[in-house]
């Protein structure tokens, strides 16, 4: 069944936050420095970012916003260190083993809807993740 654009999918959050494992997904163009950068002319692909990543190994490739803050501190757009602190302090139950980066700009929206988004959703479904925190640029 195709979901209408007017419909809003909604899954209740039924766990205690202190027991929940959280994943990040950013459309700010976040990726590992060792990964292929996004095509700034438009890119519908995504990058997997391991949960134990060192923040200094991350960067952003995007030209639709001023990336200077994110290049100084990736947590501006991808708060991985903040999640770890919240886990350490018992606010959340854990940091997911896999997070995701996208560029958020593409002329191939149909590809995002039909391929990229369902593929990411399936990967998250099959990983120990209770909720996803998303950030834009």
């Amino acid at each position: 069944m195709q979901l209408s654009r007017r419909a809003i999918p909604y899954t209740p959050f039924t766990k205690e936050l202190s027991g929940a494992t959280i994943a990040l997904l950013s459309t700010a163009g976040v990726h590992l420095k060792s990964q292929t950068p996004y095509d700034v002319e438009g890119d519908s692909s995504y990058r997997e970012i391991p949960g134990d990543v060192n923040a200094s190994d991350l960067t952003v490739t995007h030209n639709h916003y001023d990336t200077s803050q994110a290049l100084q501190d990736i947590n501006c757009v991808f708060p991985i260190d903040r999640l770890r602190e919240l886990h350490h302090d018992g606010v959340i139950g854990g940091v997911a083993p896999m997070h995701f980066g996208m560029m958020g700009y593409t002329l191939r929206m149909r590809q995002v809807i039909d391929e990229t988004a369902p593929e990411i959703a399936r990967k998250i479904e099959h990983s120990p993740t209770d909720a996803v925190l998303l950030t834009g640029g």
């Binding site: 979901l3 899954t11 997904l25 990229t116 988004a117 998250i124 998303l134 834009g136």
Partner: peptide, 21 residues
């Protein structure tokens, strides 16, 4: 964003931080 809807539709709750409401 479409990916948020896809994740939610598969049964994982999501929250978006946006500066472009």
């Amino acid at each position: 964003m479409h990916v948020q809807r896809a994740i939610e539709a598969i049964g994982i709750p999501t929250i978006l931080i946006t500066v472009e409401p």
